[in-house]
Simulated scan of single mutants.
Amino acid sequence: MKNLYLTLLSILFFGFAVHAQESKPLGKINAHIILDGKLLPIDTDTLKHFKEDDIDYATVIKDTEHKAIFGVNDEQMLLIVITKANKNKPENVALREKLSKINFAGTPKMAINPTLKKPSKDSIASGTFDFVSIEKQPQFPGGIKAFYQYLGENIKYPKEAQKNKIFGRVFLSFIVEKNGELSNIKLIRGVSSDIDAEAIRVVSGSPKWSPGIQFGVPVRVKYNINVNFNLN
């Protein structure tokens, strides 16, 4: 696994394989990263806290179709990493199952442990799943296009921001609860105080979503979204 992971890192950085004689800390990686079932912000340096021997599984996904399955829709590569310490958590069990169903044509096979058992419905953690690892993602009535239509019809552009020609995208995260309600709405990256507040207001007033499903039961799911404020 050590040499495999080094190969993956070298593909990201150089395009060819390199080898090391000792376990070294991992640095900042210019790619989308899913670490233990959670999508990290791009250019994160979270992996610097890990060494290669901490990694149970890793793979790089480049093609658009497969990246979209995990919520990545741009040109950046996607690195998926599962650590040994968390490999049996429900999020990672779900992530491995998702990966096992993908036909990685032309990509070296990665060691997905076939002996892992699904947790029983009664033993599923009461915590929160990330949307990239969920079996069935939560959904706004009518789908994501309908959600953006809802935003467009309900956003009231702040007058002061409009006057000063302030625009941009507000990035938010929230939890889709088991009953479909949205909670814990947080600002990830904002534009201005009044625009940020308006984005939070509109998302807070969203109709109920269909909840996320994992192992056949509704679960809490963390979801990321951006709200675009455009003067045009």
Rank of each mutant, 00 (worst) to 15 (best):
F70C: 04
L40W: 14
A58C: 08
L40F: 15
K98L: 09
K84N: 10
V81W: 05
F50G: 03
L40E: 12
E97H: 11
F70P: 01
P41A: 05
D54E: 10
K67D: 02
K67Q: 02
N73A: 06
N86Q: 07
E65T: 10
L95G: 02
T64Y: 06
I82C: 00
T46P: 02
L79Y: 15
L47P: 03
P41F: 08
L79T: 09
A68K: 15
P90L: 05
A85T: 07
M77P: 06
K98C: 01
K87L: 03
I82S: 01
L47H: 12
L47C: 08
L79G: 03
I55M: 00
R96C: 13
E52M: 08
T44G: 06
E91D: 10
Y57A: 02
T44F: 06
L95R: 09
I80N: 13
K101G: 01
K89N: 08
E91A: 07
A105Y: 14
P41T: 07
D63L: 05
N103E: 11
K48S: 12
K62G: 00
N103L: 14
I82K: 00
K67V: 02
A85G: 01
K51R: 13
L78S: 12
V60Q: 13
H49P: 00
D63E: 10
T64W: 05
F50M: 09
K48T: 14
E97F: 04
T83E: 05
I42V: 15
N92R: 04
Y57I: 03
N88E: 09
N92W: 07
D43F: 15
A94L: 12
K62P: 00
D45C: 00
D43R: 15
H66C: 01
A58H: 03
N92G: 00
F50P: 00
L95D: 05
E97Q: 11
A94F: 04
I69Y: 08
K101E: 07
K67C: 00
F104M: 09
D54G: 04
N73S: 07
E52F: 04
V60C: 08
I82D: 04
K89G: 02
L79F: 15
T59S: 08
E75P: 00
E91S: 09
A85I: 04
E65I: 06
I80C: 07
D63V: 05
I80V: 15
S100Q: 12
E52V: 04
L95P: 00
A85S: 08
K48A: 06
L40A: 10
M77I: 02
I102C: 08
K87N: 05
K67T: 02
H66S: 11
D63M: 07
L99H: 07
A105P: 02
F104A: 04
N86E: 08
I61S: 06
F50V: 08
F70V: 01
Y57Q: 06
F70T: 02
E65F: 03
K51G: 13
D74S: 01
N103D: 11
T44E: 11
N88M: 15
K87W: 06
D54R: 12
A105H: 14
V72Y: 12
H66R: 15
A105M: 13
I69M: 11
L47S: 10
